[in-house]
Computed example of a mutant assay.
Amino acid sequence: MSDKSEARSAARALRKRLAEADPLAASRAADHADDLPEGRAVALYRAMGSELDTDALGVVLEAAGRRLCLPVVLERDAPMIFRAWSPGEPLELDAAGCPAPLPLAEVVEPDLILTPLLAFDGFGGRLGQGGGYYDRTFAARPDVVRIGFAYAGQAVERLALEDHDVPLHGVLTEAGYRASLGISH
């Protein structure tokens, strides 16, 4: 087993414990929505497993006049696209098995993308699930603001980044928003 897969297993177990210990963390994170960087169109995600849920955040962002969209995987080795979405609208599974807006929804270019993660550091490092969907998408959209959405307890001192890893501009948690050191947006 590789170091990264061991790190992912440990981080998944920790995130599951954090989710069980603090079921209101997502609501408290939404209270800090005003601290997020500017962005007219914001890409959320539909939480799976113990990922921090974006429902409360989506309601706050939409009420603040931000347009929402969700990622859609059309091809496993290509960047994701984004389709317009509002809370309550129907979803279907995309090519990666994630809930996504229906094909008739308008394609949107987000200014800000919120991403789930397994672990993060203060330098923009993000440990994802390993599929590369977000890194491919970030690489294809270098000007988009990249924000992790996670439990504060998922923070680690430092992650080892590989060449294909695209750093985050910051992370929003139930404890507030923190910008990454050395990454400007």
Rank of each mutant, 00 (worst) to 15 (best):
Trp85Thr: 13
Ala19His: 01
Pro79Val: 01
Asp31Asn: 13
Asp53Ser: 09
Glu109Arg: 14
Glu109Val: 15
Leu172Glu: 06
Thr54Arg: 07
Val156Ser: 01
Ala56Thr: 02
Ala56Pro: 02
Phe82Asp: 06
Ala119Gln: 01
Leu61Lys: 06
Val144Phe: 04
Ala11Leu: 02
Asp121Trp: 00
Glu20Met: 08
Leu112Val: 05
Ser27Cys: 15
Leu181Asn: 14
Pro79Ala: 04
Pro71Gly: 05
Tyr177Arg: 08
Arg178Glu: 10
Gly122Leu: 12
Phe123Lys: 12
Gly125Ala: 06
Glu162Cys: 09
Arg178Thr: 12
Tyr177His: 11
Ser5Ala: 14
Gly130Ile: 00
Val107Trp: 06
Asp94Cys: 10
Tyr45Phe: 09
Asp77Tyr: 06
Gly130Ser: 05
Tyr45Glu: 08
Thr115Asp: 05
Gly58Ile: 04
Arg12Tyr: 02
Arg28Asp: 10
Gly153Ile: 10
Glu38Ile: 15
Leu112Tyr: 02
Lys16Pro: 04
Ala64Phe: 02
Gly131Gln: 04
Leu91Thr: 07
Pro87Gly: 11
Gly97Asp: 04
Ala33Val: 07
Ala160Gln: 10
Asp34Gln: 13
Leu114Tyr: 03
Ser27Ala: 15
Pro99Asp: 01
Leu57Gly: 07
Glu162Trp: 05
Asp94Lys: 09
Asp34Arg: 11
Ala47Phe: 03
Ala95Asn: 09
Cys98Ala: 14
Val107Ile: 15
Leu36Ser: 08
Asp77Gln: 14
Ala155Thr: 02
Pro103Arg: 12
Glu51Lys: 00
Glu157Gln: 13
Arg8Ala: 02
Ala100Ile: 03
Asp94Thr: 04
Val171Lys: 03
Glu75Phe: 05
Pro37Glu: 05
Ile81Glu: 06
Gly182Arg: 00
Leu44Met: 07
Leu91Trp: 02
Val166Thr: 13
Ser27Trp: 10
His164Asn: 14
Ala84Arg: 12
Phe138Lys: 03
Glu6Gly: 12
Ser184Trp: 14
Asp163Met: 11
Leu36Gly: 10
Ala64Glu: 10
Arg146Val: 15
Arg158Val: 13
Tyr151Gln: 05
Glu62Met: 14
Thr137Pro: 04
Val107Leu: 08
Val59Lys: 14
His169Gly: 11
Pro90Met: 13
Gln129His: 12
Leu70His: 07
